[in-house]
């Protein structure tokens, strides 16, 4: 199939790509743009490892066609820290040991940033429910909840 031009706005940088329409945002990020922080765990929307923000909302890059996101603003894990300073959620994950192998972590962090922004980090129970779309096989969940709770308080203050 012929490639189509796709313009993507990622982490404040404009990218021009020629892509087959079937290329997902996840594969465009990882294979075409070298933004490999976003991970592929299942490729079917079942694990959350590929969570990125499109227009500020958390979505799954594996079920999003790259072409669909033209004209929208994309943020990935690489775009979260500003000038080398960790985002409060990143800092909280580090401090609370909210990961082990680290593979699901970029997705967890992108999800957590949005979870707090949405107002769904009001209690541990709410955090557990609204972070349920991000699997962690290492079982870092208790520390993930602690990190989201900590970051939510910091963001609020």
């Amino acid at each position: 199939m012929t490639k189509i031009p796709v313009h993507l706005d990622i982490n404040g940088t404009h990218h021009h790509l020629e892509l087959e329409p079937r290329v997902t945002l996840l594969d465009a990020l990882r294979d075409r743009l070298g933004l490999t922080g976003t991970k592929k765990g299942c490729d079917h929307g079942q694990c959350g490892a590929c969570t990125v923000h499109v227009d500020g909302e958390r979505v799954l890059a594996c079920l999003t066609l790259a072409a669909q996101t033209e004209g929208r603003t994309i943020t990935t894990i690489e775009g979260l820290a500003r000038e080398g300073e960790l985002h409060p959620v990143q800092a909280a994950f580090l401090e609370q040991d909210a990961f082990q192998c680290g593979y699901c972590t970029p997705g967890q962090i992108m999800s957590a940033v949005a979870c707090i922004r949405e107002g769904h980090a009001g209690s541990d129970e709410e955090i557990r429910e609204y972070m349920a779309g991000n699997l962690c096989r290492c079982g870092a969940y208790p520390h993930i909840v602690a990190a989201v709770r900590q970051a939510a308080l910091e963001v609020a203050s």
Partner: peptide
């Protein structure tokens, strides 16, 4: 101590096997 690889992991900079892309690579 916090993890010494923690900064890499929370910023997406930790390079796992599939994150490598040598020049001329095929899939």
């Amino acid at each position: 101590l916090t993890r010494r690889d923690g900064f890499l992991k929370v910023t997406g900079a930790a390079r796992y096997a599939a994150d490598n892309h040598p020049s001329g690579m095929l899939y």
